[in-house]
């Protein structure tokens, strides 16, 4: 459908990739840990190795949670746009196929938040 308008209605989106100064947006959600109230948004260079996302970007964001230190990263299940997905840790975000405004989630088997409440 299209907007009902009195004349031609066409405007540029506000969030095109080129507006982020070389970064692209990546959204990350940690399943079963809703103490973090919503998925997080990160502006990241597409050349960043996936390993750096996990080892450098996520810890300051999530380490407040007692479960974070207990994560067995080899057992973590990843999802991209809701579908099971296997990232290559030593390849870049770009090589892993992550585009501007993609959303990924990770599930940490055995860890389901404070007292198992998914908090």
């Amino acid at each position: 459908m299209a907007v009902a308008a009195i004349r031609e209605y066409s405007f540029a989106p506000l969030d095109l990739e080129e507006k982020f100064h070389g970064n692209r947006l990546l959204y990350v959600g940690w399943d079963d840990h809703l103490m973090f109230c919503a998925p997080l948004a990160f502006p990241l260079p597409p050349t960043m190795p996936f390993r750096d996302l996990v080892e450098k970007v996520l810890p300051p964001a999530y380490s407040y949670h007692p479960d974070f230190a207990r994560i067995d990263w080899a057992a973590v299940q990843w999802f991209k746009s809701g579908q099971p997905w296997q990232p290559q840790w030593d390849e870049s975000l770009e090589q892993n196929g992550l585009r501007h405004k993609d959303v990924i989630r990770f599930r940490t088997p055995g860890l389901t938040g404070l007292q198992g409440s998914c908090s």
Partner: peptide, 10 residues
């Protein structure tokens, strides 16, 4: 005290 320092997805 907990302060979430990373901006959320909207």
């Amino acid at each position: 005290r907990f302060y979430n320092t990373t901006l959320p997805m909207l």
